[in-house]
Simulated scan of single mutants.
Amino acid sequence: MNTTNENIYTDLQQAVFEADMDLLATAFENNPDPRQALEALTKGLDAVRKKLGDYRSSVAEFLLCVDVMRAGLRQIRDNRPQDGDMPVVVIGVVRGDVHDLGKNIVAGVLEAYGYRVVDLGRDVAPLEFVEAVEKQGASVLALSAMMSTPLADMSRTIEICKNRLPHVKVLVGGAALDQDAAQSMGADGYAESAVGVPVSLKNVMNAGKTRASRVFVDYDKKLRVEEVEAASLPEQE
């Protein structure tokens, strides 16, 4: 166990990489900075993901590391002062897709940042999403898809939401998507990585206060933010 303040984050990263709940708990006893803690946890999970991709780890081992990651996210959330003014985010995996691991991590990251998250789970129908947004008074709808087959339902969900609740911002992500696909479906934002979602969401929310009407963030290019002004967007049919 490292004892210096600087090395707390090394311990957090190592805790995820080694699926070590005890090391995680000990590191959080030193009250790490929430943002740096989130970055360290993410680095640990990225290292495990690479190990899995290189066939040096099993899926079962990876899932144990994910459990430690999520426990760390809960610690950040519980240690963070609650802000009643934070937006409500409705999140879920679209109908036809049952892969919810990434969605679960995104939900945890958003909660760690203080957002109020309503998680609808997986295989969620378009109207179920929109009705939940209405019921919860949510400002943001976050949609996930890991496969390409449910993208038609994702597009339909966005269409219904924009028609009934034009003020609601829609953020999308998942392995089946890229920036072009997100933009073509009418989403307000796209995030490629879970840790980058709060930044993308903040940009999406702020876009309504500026001339920009779409914000897309590419996290493989060091958070390059492209803002497309409303005047330059194609007209919606």
Rank of each mutant, 00 (worst) to 15 (best):
S232W: 05
L223I: 07
G53S: 12
N31L: 12
L73Q: 06
V90A: 10
T10Q: 11
L73M: 14
D33G: 08
A182T: 08
T4L: 08
P198A: 15
R122S: 10
R56H: 12
M21G: 01
L177H: 08
F216S: 02
P166C: 12
V106R: 02
V89L: 07
N206T: 03
G108F: 06
D153S: 14
G84T: 06
A212Q: 03
R35G: 08
R214N: 01
V170Q: 04
L201W: 03
C65L: 07
L143G: 02
D46M: 10
A207E: 03
S58F: 01
V199A: 13
S184K: 15
E192T: 10
A175F: 03
D54Y: 05
L233M: 15
D153G: 12
S148Y: 11
K222M: 13
S144C: 08
Q75M: 13
E226N: 12
R74W: 04
S57L: 14
M146I: 11
G114H: 06
E192L: 14
M86G: 03
E131I: 00
F17L: 08
L63Y: 05
A71Y: 04
Y55A: 12
G72A: 10
K103P: 01
L52A: 14
P34A: 11
V172Q: 04
K202F: 04
V68M: 04
V215G: 02
N79E: 13
D123N: 13
D54H: 09
A231P: 00
K222I: 11
R224L: 11
G53C: 08
E18T: 14
V94P: 01
F17Q: 11
S193N: 11
P81F: 05
G92F: 02
S184I: 02
V117A: 08
T42A: 14
V59H: 05
M1P: 04
T149Q: 10
D218R: 09
N104R: 07
E159P: 00
Q82C: 06
T4A: 10
M1S: 13
L63E: 00
V118P: 00
A212C: 12
A40H: 08
A181W: 01
S200G: 15
D97Y: 12
L23T: 07
A194F: 05
Q75H: 13
K50A: 12
N206I: 01
R164V: 00
E226A: 12
A112Q: 09
A132I: 00
M69V: 01
G189A: 10
D85L: 11
M154P: 00
D20T: 04
A152V: 13
V168L: 07
A145Y: 05
Y190N: 08
K50D: 12
D46R: 13
V109I: 15
A145I: 04
E131Q: 15
G114S: 14
Y113V: 01
D123P: 03
R56Q: 15
A25Q: 14
L171M: 15
R156T: 09
A15G: 11
V215L: 06
A152H: 05
A15Y: 06
K169N: 05
A230T: 15
E18F: 06
R211M: 08
V195A: 14
A27W: 03
